[in-house]
Amino acid sequence: MTLRPALRDALIAAVALVVLLLIPAFHRSPAFEDYVIRVSAMALFATSLNLLVGGAGMVSFGHGMFYGLGAYAFALLMQMTDLSLPVAALAAIVITAVGALLVGAVCIRLGTIYFAFVTLAMQMLFYSIIISWQSLTGGDQGLRGGIPRRELFGFELGSQLHLYQLCAVVMVLGLLAMRHISASPFGATLRMIRDNETRAGFLGVVLWRARLTAFVLAGAFAGLGGVLAALFVSGAYPELADWPNSGQAIFAVMLGGIDTFLGPLVGTMILLALNDVVTRVTEYHGLVLGLVILAFALGLRRGLLDFLRLRRKRTAP
């Protein structure tokens, strides 16, 4: 007897969440909790990017704009209004989705190369607005007023443990939601567009509508990651919306694997762990990380999980 895929995924997510929540009960490690919080935000960001890259073949160089937009929208709502934390987070996600709708309406009809560079241009424009609009965003200093009312259902999110627990829950639920999207008929439609958009059009798929929907969903989940990042840094900073942050997400997808759903999560874990280790050893961390990524690209010729899955298929009887 086999479980239905949706039930199987839910059970795996539940087990992973229970394990994450139980770890601090047996051994408290501030460094590990800090790492999981950062992984939670970046994994949602990178996996949302892979909804476009691996799902629809849409390579966005400017996806970090939605990560930054989610962080800034949430931080500003918490600082300037009396909204509760859940309502402000939901409003920030909606704002990010609307931003993705506006940007996507301009970009999704473009060819692959032009799409990539126009999204990058949009991100650079958004970053320039953040730097220039000092009265609202704080300019290059960012929003340093903190996140007030950091309490959720009786949990004080100023506590690292409580923030760790919240981020673990949000990450697992967010990844599970994106897994359902990827495994749904809509996800199959996106893969069909990726593989042969001409045939998809002949079969009645409205290409621009499917791509725009994917773009908005990806932007919304990136905004959710931005909300977690804002909680972690207790504010919002221009670096969250700068183009190197989009590069980090692309590297995470490349390291973990494009064609495997958990690839971006694994890539995020590898990338952040490497960042933590390398920065303690040498100031030339960028050079070392570049060499590692080259080793994956030239040695494995694909992400880690993609490589392992292909190897397992070749060795299967």
Rank of each mutant, 00 (worst) to 15 (best):
P244A: 08
R314N: 13
L207R: 11
E33H: 14
L20Q: 10
G204A: 07
A116Y: 03
R28Q: 12
W133S: 08
Y237V: 07
I95C: 05
L83G: 06
G303F: 00
G138F: 01
G55R: 15
T198E: 10
M178Q: 11
L298C: 09
G146Y: 01
I113M: 13
A6I: 13
A121S: 13
G57S: 06
F117K: 04
E156G: 07
R314I: 07
V281M: 11
G187N: 03
G174A: 12
L291E: 06
D34Q: 10
W133G: 07
L101S: 05
G299M: 03
S182K: 03
A200S: 13
M192T: 15
T213W: 06
L22T: 15
I130K: 06
R302I: 01
V169C: 03
A229W: 01
V87D: 07
L22W: 15
G286R: 13
G219C: 07
A100M: 04
V288M: 10
L22G: 15
I93P: 00
G142Y: 13
A229E: 09
T81S: 14
G145L: 00
D82L: 08
V278A: 08
G223W: 00
T137S: 14
F221R: 02
L85V: 03
Q134P: 03
F155Q: 04
V205T: 10
I37A: 06
T81Q: 13
M254D: 01
L224N: 03
P5W: 08
L85C: 05
F251I: 04
F202S: 07
V277S: 09
A116P: 04
M42R: 11
F61R: 02
L304C: 10
V39I: 15
L305Y: 06
V266N: 01
L76F: 06
T282M: 06
D306R: 02
A252V: 05
T189I: 08
L265Q: 08
L77S: 01
D259F: 12
L255M: 09
D242A: 12
Q248Y: 14
I37Y: 08
A177C: 11
V103L: 09
E156S: 11
G55F: 05
F202G: 03
A46L: 14
F115L: 04
G146H: 05
L77E: 00
G138L: 08
L120R: 02
A25F: 14
A177T: 14
V278R: 12
A14G: 09
L305Q: 03
G226K: 08
T96E: 06
G299Q: 04
